[in-house]
């Protein structure tokens, strides 16, 4: 039995769990390659137009696996923490894919609630059905997978650069070096080190989130908002680089909340979509790096907008 796992969306964060689980069950794994031009093109061709870039890329990965496996695993990640969702598109991801790409093999798409072990076990039992019915084997596979995942760490934390920025955004935009055009390398080459949210947890972030009127109901929103707000208000970094996919609903909210919190603190929002031209990104990143360098060395506290946006009078 060949199980296909698309290398898209949250694969970068949860691949130890999913790959270990299906390997332990005795399935042969087929994993799609790193995102490339042909995968992106296939995704754009099949996916519904309005979807965001990462969802289109995911479609491309599934399309790549279409004729190479007997079962495709499309995670329907509903909740990772209690009372928090990922995004509506994640909840409906299997439907989007199966209704857009013709000729797919059987799909495993049971909802994943990673809130308690019992709910994960339900998912494991249901998902393992087409591969094995041995309940004990499923149980031990799940335990091994959870164990593997708990030892897994991602994230960047550069040392020894004169300038440090917080690199924020959804994990699939940060770690897919094809769709973000290897932004980390670009920044590093300009003498800018990055830190990601995995290295900045703790009380500061939690406190920032608690100060909101409403507890965010998206995991991404809670983590990213807390991360940027904590680092920027404590001035642990000199700037923020936010990678956001065009038309991302969650980012439109996070960026607004963050802007309101950090005011004129330097933040570069890089929008990426399937048309992104690399030269434009280079220019913007270089300009941002120059500005940070100048504000650290020569001038202090100049607004990144050229004028104080947040203290000016409303035009209405």
């Amino acid at each position: 039995m060949k199980v296909g796992i698309p290398r898209g969306l949250l694969y970068d964060q949860f691949h130890p769990f999913f790959t270990r689980f299906f390997t332990e069950l005795g399935a042969e794994l087929v994993i799609s390659p790193q995102t490339n031009k042909s995968i992106l093109d296939a995704g754009v061709q099949y996916c519904v137009d309005e979807a965001c870039l990462p969802v289109k890329v995911f479609h491309g990965h599934v399309c790549h696996l279409r004729d190479r496996c007997d079962l495709v695993f499309i995670p329907r990640i509903m909740q990772l923490y209690k009372g928090e969702y990922i995004c509506p598109k994640f909840c409906g991801l299997p439907e989007m894919v199966t209704n857009s790409i013709p000729g797919l093999p059987e799909v495993i798409s049971h909802p994943v609630y990673a809130t308690t072990m019992a709910r994960l076990r339900q998912w494991a039992m249901a998902s393992a059905c087409p591969i094995t019915r041995d309940r004990r084997r499923v149980k031990s596979a799940l335990e091994a997978a959870v164990d593997e995942q708990s030892r897994f760490r991602t994230g960047y934390h550069d040392q020894g650069y004169p300038i440090k920025v917080a690199l924020a955004g959804h994990p699939y935009n940060l770690y897919d070096t094809f769709i973000n055009m290897n932004i980390k390398k670009k920044l590093n080459n300009l003498g800018v080190g990055v830190i990601t949210e995995e290295f900045a947890g703790g009380e500061d972030t939690a406190q920032e989130v608690r100060a909101l009127f409403k507890k965010p109901f998206w995991t991404f929103a809670r983590k990213t908002y807390g991360f940027i707000a904590a680092l920027a208000s404590k001035k642990h970094v000199q700037g923020v680089v936010y990678i956001s996919s065009f038309a991302c609903g969650i980012d439109s909210v996070i960026i607004e909340l963050v802007r309101d919190r950090i005011k004129d603190f330097p933040m570069l929002v890089l929008k990426i979509d399937e048309h992104t031209g690399e030269a434009g990104v280079d220019t913007r990143v270089e300009a941002f790096a120059d500005m940070l360098e100048r504000s650290c060395k020569h001038e202090s506290d100049h607004s990144p907008y050229g004028q104080c946006l947040y203290s000016c009078k409303s035009p209405v």
Binding site: Y85, P88, F213, K214, F217, E256, L257
Partner: peptide, 24 residues
Amino acid sequence: TGSCGPCRFGEYSEMHMKLLRRLG
């Protein structure tokens, strides 16, 4: 009204409050 579904509408009130306060 508010909501806590995964749709953006749930965040409206928070964002509206901050936006209007910022506008004075």
